[in-house]
Design a protein around this nucleic acid. Sequence first.
DNA 1: ATGGTAGGTACCCTA
Length: 269
Amino acid sequence: MRICSWNINSVRLRAPIVQDMMNEYQPDIVCLQETKTPDDKFPFEAFESLGYNHIHISGIKGYNGVAIISKMPISQPEIYSRVDRADGRHISARFMAEGFAKPIEIHCIYIPAGGDEPDRAINEKFAHKLDFIAELDAWFTHNHSDDTAMVALGDFNIAPLEHDVWSHKQLLKTVSHTPIEVEALTAMQSSIDWVDALRHFVPEDEKCYTWWSYRNRDWRKSNRGRRLDHIWVTPDLKPRLKSHIIVSDARDLVKPSDHVPVMVDFDFS
DNA sequence: ATGGTAGGTACCCTA
């Protein structure tokens, strides 16, 4: 079974490249962030026409927005208001995988970017980011159960490890790689022993990126990337992790997203 | 130290 996460930066503009990705990689579930589309304008047909008939979304006008797009039936769709905002950043749904006894609950998450200044006292956006993570941490700690496996994925807007950025030293004061937010994300990860599935496959001393800024003339040449997109799984799924794909070539498409698709394959046989 | 690009929206926000 293959699960994919992609910050698509407008699903209406880029539905065709999502379709191309679906045709090429055949993921069973695709989770999108930054759909930037109200629910009544979501391009359902584009995905239903490819057999993705089970879609759960939470969109708002202009920014944010998340989607879970599945070939398999999903149940218990949930939409969460985090930090008292109904702003399209966190949804979940459950599905059953053949060969795996427990239901799997998948959480599609778009953590706030956090603005420019890494100081909660003077930057409300950074405070929002930290509050969002703390609330998520508490929610998962309180709600996880051995009866249900979980996958938490999406654009976390944090590159936690030294080799998740092109220059650890030069980015220590840049939001997405500052110690305070890395610490918050690491605390959340350790609360219920989330397994970082991409780093399960990519050694920690190896550079690994999923995002390259639009503000570089030649993203491949400068290669100033960051690993902002993550797929985490609960420990019961760790033995089922089979392989991963980071579709870096998607950064070279015409009118690309600044993020590329990340995928994990599970073996439930 | 600075500014570079992109999308959506409505003349400016977020990333």
